[in-house]
Design a protein around this nucleic acid. Structure first.
Length: 517
DNA sequence: GGATCCGTTGTAGCT
DNA sequence: AAGCTACAACGGATC
């Protein structure tokens, strides 16, 4: 009797799922038991309400899909990983067990896996199979440990790495196809029932009540991005499969345009980040659909194309694995030592709560808090504001806020993007490019724009304010403020800094810090 | 080996 | 009023 325990770590889907693929291809298992073990921080304040909701929606969707396609009940567990796995192995007391899981690059998850490896090395009838690159295009470990590997800093470097890894000089590098959905797997009801009723295991099983509490009450704001593979694939169809022109024209703006920065109701980007981060969506599938669209005609190319975005994602995964202390401002070869001010909790609080007195910054921070999402250029603007632009706070404190609140939180990418934006990394944007937190509307000063609507949507205090003053309401006359039912300094804060002075001072401070390196 | 180019993503001020 | 220009100026790759 052979049983496969399929441990889904960061892969919450059944399409292009190499774990299920392996079970199917080996073909010799009598039983398959899919499990998921919730990591401790997912149940604490380390995750915002939105992040929790996204994760648990995704888990319930995985459960539903496994059941619908394979009649496999997913065991949702919480607790110490080695303790849980030991009990699972004990409960499956007859025959061989093969534990199959996906590889994750995050340091704590590598430690977790190392502990599991040592547990299994003591057990004669249990073996372990680790599937690499379930959630990346490249096999991160293989690339990073290759003798020819040097740390990438640009798209050119990434193109070289892709050429070598896939042994292809073609435009799309012959990245492997996503796998077809596995047609069928053995029935597993009996074994899983045995597991879920086992006393030692059942105390680790997440109850319906516990799951419901993680899902929380319906948020007041309609969720832009409900969690789960089903939602991911729907969105892929809408944005990519049914819309090749969108992919072929996809290009990040070279300047911050009013329209690009904010469309609060539907992003101009794909909105797939959260699904990729949680493993609800296969990056190979996205790559393939981009290639299919590209083959139909002229198209944008890396770095601005969507394939380029996926390649930057790979770049940060590689760096996060090869750079020591990737998430730290000390002992990190990719972080220049800039003399930031000491942590100022009050400044961080005003920024985090959207009370800086800069309406665009505040609107975006309130959107992040309410929905767990922010447009990428919004992220640039608020993180630039927090670091070298205005507040001169260390990037790591802003990084922590993003990590807790974003539904697309991803350790490798979040740190990489903050390093990039703070201007401290070798791959950074030039430090003197400071975003203006108060961009004036592109056309006539009193014309209604997307951005003005966006501000009024998230900052109801300003809902009657004229567009002319919406970015800097403190400049409006007392009369205008009274007529708009919003007195600055009473109903909405004064700007917490003089943006022109702090910009100028910070530019000089950055230059000075660099000259001391 | 020195000069030049390039790097996903800017801003302010003037005309 | 859109478009130009000055600003500021790192470091590695390329020629």
């Amino acid at each position: 009797m052979k049983t496969a325990v399929v441990w889904h770590r960061n892969i919450l889907r059944i399409h292009d799922n190499p774990l299920l693929d392996m079970v199917h291809d080996k073909g010799h298992f009598d039983h398959v038991v899919p499990i998921y073990i919730v990591t401790p921080e997912a149940l604490t304040e380390d995750y915002s309400v939105n992040r929790k909701r996204f994760l648990f929606q995704s888990l319930l969707d995985l459960k539903k899909n496994l059941d619908a396609h394979y009649k496999m009940p997913l065991l949702l567990l919480q607790g110490d990983v080695n303790q849980i796995l030991s009990r699972v192995f004990e409960a499956l007391d007859s025959g061989e067990v093969e534990l199959i899981c996906d590889y994750c690059t995050h340091p704590s998850r590598r430690t977790e896996l190392a502990n599991v490896e040592s547990l299994i090395s003591e057990k004669a009838d249990v073996s372990l199979t680790i599937v690499s690159s379930a959630n990346t295009l490249l096999d991160i470990e293989t690339v990073v440990s290759s003798p020819s590997y040097t740390e990438p800093k640009s798209m050119k470097d990434m193109q070289k790495i892709f050429k070598r890894a896939f042994k292809s000089t073609s435009e799309h590098f012959n990245v492997p196809e996503p796998r077809k959905k596995v047609p069928n797997l053995p029935l597993v009801k009996r074994v899983s029932k045995k597991l879920s009723t086992d006393k030692k295991i059942s105390k680790h099983v997440l109850s319906e009540k516990k799951i419901a509490s993680q899902l929380g009450k319906d948020s007041k704001e309609k969720s832009y991005f409900p969690g789960g593979e089903s939602e991911a694939l729907d969105r892929v169809d809408r944005k990519i499969s049914d819309n090749p022109a969108y992919i072929n024209n996809f290009s990040k703006p070279s300047t911050v345009s009013t329209n690009e920065r904010n469309n609060p109701f539907e992003p101009t980007t794909t909105g797939l980040s959260a699904y990729l981060a949680a493993g609800c969506l296969s990056p190979r599938l996205v790559w393939r659909l981009c290639v299919n669209a590209n083959l139909t005609g002229p198209h944008t190319k890396p770095p601005v194309s969507l394939t380029g975005q996926l390649m930057f994602r790979e770049m940060f995964y590689l760096l996060s694995r090869s750079v020591e202390n990737w998430d730290s401002d000390v002992g990190n070869s990719n972080c220049k030592n800039i003399e930031w001010d000491d942590l100022d909790k009050e400044k961080v609080r005003l920024w985090e709560e959207g009370k800086t007195g800069f309406p665009l910054i505040d609107a975006m921070m309130r959107q992040l808090d309410a929905t767990g999402w922010m447009h990428h250029l919004g992220r640039h603007a608020v993180s630039c504001f927090f670091t070298r632009g205005q507040l001169w706070q260390n990037w790591k404190y802003g990084r922590d806020v993003f990590d807790r609140k974003l539904i697309d939180s991803d350790w490798a990418l979040n740190n990489g993007n903050w390093l990039w934006l703070a201007g401290v990394a070798p791959f950074s944007m030039p430090y003197f490019r400071i975003y203006n937190p108060c961009p004036t509307p592109g056309t006539s000063l009193n014309v209604e724009t997307d951005e003005a609507q966006f501000i009024r949507h998230w900052i109801p205090e300003l809902k009657s304010f004229p567009s002319k003053y919406i970015f800097e309401p403190h400049l409006a006359s007392e009369k205008v403020q009274r007529e708009s039912n919003c007195i600055i300094g009473v109903d909405y804060p004064e700007p917490m800094v003089d943006r022109k002075i702090s910009r100028k001072n910070n530019l000089a401070k950055f230059k000075e810090s660099l000259s001391r390196l």
